[in-house]
């Protein structure tokens, strides 16, 4: 007689909501797992009527997509949640933002009307501030990286060290002066698997572009979304917003 999961009623989800949040300042040192715990606790504090999975250990239904690595800041992270009673997106944005620690900030909430959020997250635009170099120096390094046919970097995976080529993921970049912080590269990268990490791009700038070693660079993801033909990164929530503007009956 094996023990069965308790006979809890599993309440079906009635609505999905997509959340854009930012990871700012010191909070950029939080890992994705840190964020998951913080979000789940914040959802409870904000009394969001979450849908739960069935089984011995019910978990709130949250879908995470493509999180920025530990140490990188972001203005454009996305998750989707499922709730058992309908919620007002604007109220949810305000309450959830208040329930999260400052630095994990909820920027936008829209009701999901389309099926594939992850499919919308095709590319990322990163700002990478490299301390101790001027814009000309960074420009040269970026030109060398851009001109390279391949940019192999070593990454330690679960299976052991593996060599990845960064080059095919690069869409384009521009260099700007960053004042006291040095110089900054704004670069657009395709969200391929495995994801290209900004610190690996810095490795390429040092090794291929000849930048001198120095303090760690500071990276911020500025945008994440569909990649247009001209190389710009669009708003991944635009289809949901457009669908929400139409009458409810037309949504699925």
């Amino acid at each position: 007689m094996a023990r069965r999961p308790p006979d809890r009623e599993v309440v079906p989800a009635v609505q999905r909501l997509r959340i854009r949040y930012a990871k700012r300042g010191p909070l950029r040192f939080s890992s994705h797992r840190d964020f998951q715990r913080a979000l789940e606790r914040a959802l409870r504090r904000a009394r969001v009527p979450m849908a739960y999975s069935a089984g011995f250990s019910p978990h709130p239904k949250v879908s995470y997509a493509n999180a920025a690595p530990t140490g990188a800041a972001s203005e454009a992270e996305y998750v989707e949640i499922a709730v058992v009673r309908r919620c007002d997106p604007d109220a949810l944005r305000a309450e959830l933002d208040a329930a999260l620690p400052p630095g994990l900030d909820v920027v936008d909430v829209v009701e999901a009307r389309t099926s594939d959020l992850v499919g919308q997250l095709q590319a990322s635009r990163w700002r990478i501030e490299v301390p101790g170099v001027d814009a000309d120096r960074l420009e040269q390094a970026w030109a060398a990286v851009w001109a390279a046919e391949a940019l192999p970097v070593q990454r330690l995976m679960k299976q052991g060290p593996r060599t990845l080529d960064l080059r095919p993921a690069l869409v384009g970049g521009v260099v700007a002066d960053a004042g006291a912080l040095g110089a900054a590269l704004e670069v657009t990268v395709r969200n391929v698997t495995p994801t290209v990490r900004p610190d690996e791009l810095v490795v390429a700038l040092r090794e291929v572009g000849g930048l001198p070693p120095g303090d760690p660079a500071r990276a911020t993801r500025l945008a994440q979304g569909p990649l247009a033909e001209d190389g710009t990164v669009g708003d991944p929530l635009a289809p949901d917003r457009a669908a929400a503007a139409r009458p409810l009956a037309s949504s699925s």
Partner: peptide, 18 residues
């Protein structure tokens, strides 16, 4: 902050707990 990217689990040093 300048050295936190170089250490393991840097989040433990930033404070700001709820």
């Amino acid at each position: 902050e300048a050295v936190l990217p170089l250490v393991s689990k840097p989040v433990q040093y930033i404070g700001g707990e709820l």
